[in-house]
């Protein structure tokens, strides 16, 4: 009896979190898969089983591929830049800059603390083609005026710019935390050997930051794939769907068009896509990462 009870108690302790996981994660996932096999929209009062037809329509739809491409451009375009900026700022701000260091840290982290909606509206005005500050400075520098959010080619880069500005502070903070954990002896040894700043960064800091980088990449990819708020606030996917991304497309289908079947099919495709990307990436990164110091 005693052993049976001993085996049971861990599961008992897990029940509270399990309840939430089931209610808010597993049940919705399976229910999305189920609904995605049905036609369920304004015209159908009850879901009608149609097998994989939603997926067939989806993959045959040019708009879906444009949305998928926009999402990839956004992810691939924002993450490397955000990471490089975060890393460079973190390394610089980890140096001894006197009392100014905290001022710089706050300045770099400040965008992260602004609510997303406020940041988006701020950039809508900065990017306004006629009266925006950014075009004002571009013209002062003798550069051509850009129509930014009005323009099919510039709208997505404009949103990416906003996202990088908004997010790099968060990743900088994580890198800073990683830097604070660096063993000082290694740098002392390097100093004795006469290594300069760049050699130390290249041979000590970067390798030791690898586990932090894995975390940053994974979190960065998940947040980038999930971009919604900036698109919703700045362009509503326009002009001509040039800024429509996959989560926004899910929202349009499920909530604006009341096409729950299609929305669910998109959700399933999206989840599978993220899972594959993350799995491949973890494989790739873990082979190159040494967690032991």
């Amino acid at each position: 009896m005693r052993t049976a009870k001993g085996n049971l108690s861990p599961y008992l302790y897990l029940i509270p979190s399990l309840v939430f996981l089931v209610a808010f994660t597993y049940y919705p996932i399976f229910s999305s898969v189920y609904i995605s096999l049905h036609e369920w929209n304004l015209f159908t009062r009850e879901p009608v089983f149609i097998g994989l037809e939603n997926y067939a329509i989806l993959f045959g739809d040019t708009l879906f591929w444009r949305v998928a491409r926009n999402t990839l451009v956004y992810v691939v375009g924002t993450i490397p830049l955000t990471m490089v900026m975060a890393l460079v700022m973190a390394i610089l701000l980890n140096e001894r800059l006197g009392w100014m260091r905290n001022v710089y840290r706050v300045a770099a982290f400040y965008p992260t603390m602004i609510p997303m909606a406020a940041a988006a509206m701020l950039w809508v005005w900065l990017l306004n083609p006629g009266i925006g500050l950014i075009n004002h400075y571009l013209m002062q520098l003798g550069l051509p005026r850009i129509e930014w959010l009005y323009n099919m080619d510039w709208a997505l880069p404009a949103i990416m710019l906003t996202a990088i500005w908004k997010n790099f502070g968060y990743f900088m903070l994580i890198y800073l935390a990683g830097l604070q954990n660096m063993p000082g002896e290694l740098y002392e040894a390097a100093d004795l050997e006469g290594a300069n700043f760049f050699q130390k960064v290249r041979h000590i800091t970067l390798p030791l930051l690898a586990p932090t980088t894995v975390f940053v990449v994974v979190v960065g990819i998940i947040t980038s794939f999930n971009v919604f708020d900036l698109v919703h606030l700045m362009t509503q996917g326009g002009p001509g769907n040039r800024t429509n991304v996959i989560v926004y497309y899910i929202y349009q289908n499920a909530f604006r068009f009341s096409d729950y079947g299609m929305g669910s099919a998109l959700t399933v495709v999206f989840v599978v896509m993220i899972l594959i990307v993350i799995l491949v990436l973890m494989r790739f990164l873990e082979r190159r990462t040494h967690y032991e110091v």
Partner: peptide
């Protein structure tokens, strides 16, 4: 028309593409 939100999106994308000269 019913499903007007979608009707609107379809027309808007067509207009946007043509307005861009694509």
């Amino acid at each position: 028309a019913p499903a007007y939100q979608r009707v609107r999106e379809i027309l808007k994308s067509a207009l946007d593409d043509a307005q861009a000269g694509l």
